[in-house]
Simulated assay, not measured.
Amino acid sequence: MHAPAQSSPAQENPARGPGITPARVPGDRVREAPGLLSRDGAVILTGHGNTSDALVVAAALVIGDRLRELYPHRVRTSHNGGLVHLHADSFDSTVDIGGVPHRRRHPDEDHVLVQCARPAPEGGASFVLDAYAFVDGLATSDPVLYDFLTGTDVDLYGAWAGLRGLPATPRVARHVEYTRTGRRIARRTDGAVPLHRDPASEHVDRQLGRLREAVHGAEASLPRFRLAEGDILVLDNYRCRHGREAHRGERTVRILTLRSSDAR
């Protein structure tokens, strides 16, 4: 049941393209989900109750004894919502409750679960990009951007420095890195800015803009899929970026992020 958190580089198969259509796994076959998540980076669990408890149960079933930390549930309701561009869930937030620090979000959340609590009556289809395949493709199609992603430090959340709960200390990292256990991280955050007084700030800003354009440009070609009420999309957050199309009417999702023992 407890398959490795990601496939080895030889198994990533970037030649297949960066689009992912997650396999759907009903509740009576949930033991297949860890292997599919390892292979594809994403899987959809069907047949679960439309409750926040179902997210916790799904996390335990798919991640198993590698589950290390769960972060608070988030409920997102949108009314006639616009396009949500490809992104990976990542943030760094700690709050004080009764004099005790409590972490609400972690920069190294390596899995995210999204449950459709109320599907939109029109639109709202989801799409997922395999960021490993996307980055590997840049090595030949855009080596300058590839070198930037793999070789340049940025402040991951500097654009949001004024938010309460966000640490004042810059979070310095590269967009593409590896954990000590060998997992590859392919980040995507709109909060990234050049390091303070970085002499290459203009170059960094230019490459951040080019990355945004490249990611947005990839969205139209990605396969679409819809989540029915209660469906849970499970993502390897180190590997995948996800988004959704605009929709009419009201749409609600529940989100649970976590860290496994394979995370940084």
Rank of each mutant, 00 (worst) to 15 (best):
R174S: 09
H203I: 11
G124E: 03
D153P: 00
S221E: 14
T152M: 00
G17S: 03
P26E: 06
P26R: 11
G182E: 11
L45V: 01
A133L: 07
L227T: 05
G35S: 10
T21N: 13
Q207G: 08
G35R: 10
H85L: 07
H102V: 15
A133S: 14
R68L: 03
G165I: 06
S78F: 09
R187E: 07
T179S: 15
D155H: 00
H106W: 11
R24E: 00
A42P: 05
V176E: 12
S126L: 01
A159P: 03
R103E: 14
G17M: 03
T77L: 04
Y146H: 10
A58S: 12
S260Q: 02
H87T: 11
R74M: 12
Q115F: 05
D53E: 11
L163D: 10
E229L: 04
T181R: 13
A131G: 14
Y157M: 05
A10C: 10
H203E: 12
F148H: 02
E213G: 15
R104N: 09
R248W: 02
G165H: 05
R66E: 02
L70W: 05
L129D: 00
W160E: 04
E109C: 15
I20V: 15
G47T: 05
R197K: 13
V128M: 01
L156W: 06
H242Y: 02
H216Y: 09
L258N: 07
P121H: 08
D89R: 07
D153Y: 07
V84C: 12
G209V: 13
R76E: 08
T21Q: 14
P170Y: 11
R39M: 02
V234P: 04
D147N: 09
G47M: 03
R103C: 10
I232Y: 02
A214S: 15
V84W: 10
R31M: 11
H196P: 09
L36F: 05
G27A: 14
G243A: 01
R210W: 13
R188S: 14
A131F: 14
A173F: 07
R103Q: 15
T77E: 08
G17I: 04
D89V: 07
A263Y: 06
Q207D: 07
A228Q: 06
A159H: 10
E202V: 14
L256T: 06
A246I: 06
R39C: 00
V234E: 04
D231Y: 02
R74H: 07
L36T: 06
Y71T: 08
R31G: 12
L222G: 03
A59P: 08
L129S: 03
H111W: 13
G47Q: 04
A133G: 12
P107W: 11
G249H: 00
S78H: 09
R104S: 09
D96H: 01
E250Q: 08
P194I: 11
V128W: 01
A214R: 15
A218V: 12
R174M: 09
T257F: 07
A58C: 08
L36G: 05
L67Y: 01
S221P: 00
V100S: 07
W160S: 03
H242M: 01
A186N: 15
I185S: 11
G98P: 02
H175A: 13
V253K: 02
R212E: 12
